[in-house]
Simulated assay, not measured.
Amino acid sequence: MSESPPGTATPEAVHVERVMKQNYIALVKLLAVRIVVIAVLIAVPMALYGAGAPNSLFLVLPVIPAMFLLILTAYRLWAGVRLAQCRKVLLHYPLEFHTRVVKKSSLWTEYGTVFEVKISTRGEHGAPLMKAINAAGRRRWPEGTENGVWVAGDLAFGGVMVVPGSNAMLFLNPADWDKLAPRREEAGAERIARAQQAGINRRNWRKPILLRG
């Protein structure tokens, strides 16, 4: 089901497994680039030392950013990558097309760029402000959202946004979890149970996102 009004073209429905595969590939590419950079930063000083270069501070310096990048990568994998969460949501909710999504702001964090967005819902007013993070760890805002997006989930709890064309996938959670508490309490037993099964019945962003705004 989609919320696109008469006369608005709805893009071809997305294939969930294809979307998941493309996002896992995107994550692998991101990690591969980082691993290559880390390897170069460590291998070059070792090669120079093996070639007879004197053991000096300048020879050790590249190892410091390599270790920093390694720690940051591990942290982003732990806190920023949301592919497993997205798969769980997509197992329990269908994708519905929404004709309008507006990016309100963005926040750089150690584990990814967090966007604040509003997604239109036809026939309803007061669309909740949502936090969105690229499930595969990319930082840039995906192209193609101006023509509408696919959304799975329950916005009072959270969900998943998929961009037509690129199949970029973002995990969603209410920007102000406490503000939407009355909506969740009034959701009814069936909606609450479904949110529990999908893993969006709780605040999915605790620290450190709250510490960074």
Rank of each mutant, 00 (worst) to 15 (best):
T109W: 03
L83P: 13
L95C: 09
A84W: 13
P94I: 11
K118D: 03
F115G: 00
P94F: 11
F97C: 07
T109F: 01
S105C: 06
F115T: 01
P94H: 12
L95F: 08
T113I: 05
V117R: 00
E116P: 03
V101L: 14
F115R: 01
F97G: 08
Q85V: 05
L91F: 04
K104T: 00
P94C: 10
Y93M: 10
V117W: 00
E96S: 11
S106G: 09
E116D: 10
K88S: 15
L90D: 06
S105N: 12
L83W: 14
G112P: 01
A84Y: 11
V102S: 09
S106M: 09
H92D: 11
H98W: 08
S106A: 13
L90P: 05
R100F: 03
T113V: 11
T113D: 01
F97K: 12
E110Q: 10
V101C: 09
T109A: 03
E110M: 08
K103N: 05
V102C: 02
L83Y: 14
L107A: 00
H98L: 02
K118P: 01
K88Q: 15
R100Q: 11
K104E: 02
Y93E: 14
T113S: 00
E116F: 01
V114C: 03
L107D: 02
V102M: 08
S105G: 06
L90W: 05
W108A: 15
E110W: 07
S105M: 06
V117A: 02
R100C: 08
E96F: 07
K88H: 13
L107G: 04
R87Y: 11
V102Q: 13
Y111C: 07
S105A: 14
T113P: 02
R100P: 04
F115M: 04
A84E: 11
K103I: 02
W108T: 13
K118R: 12
A84C: 09
R100N: 13
G112R: 03
C86I: 05
C86Q: 04
S105T: 14
K103E: 09
L91C: 08
K104D: 02
Q85A: 12
V102K: 13
R87C: 08
H92F: 10
L95Q: 14
E96A: 09
F97P: 09
V102L: 07
K104I: 01
R87A: 11
C86S: 15
T99S: 11
T109H: 00
L91R: 15
K103W: 00
K103L: 04
A84S: 12
L83H: 10
Q85E: 14
G112N: 05
K104W: 01
V114W: 05
V114L: 11
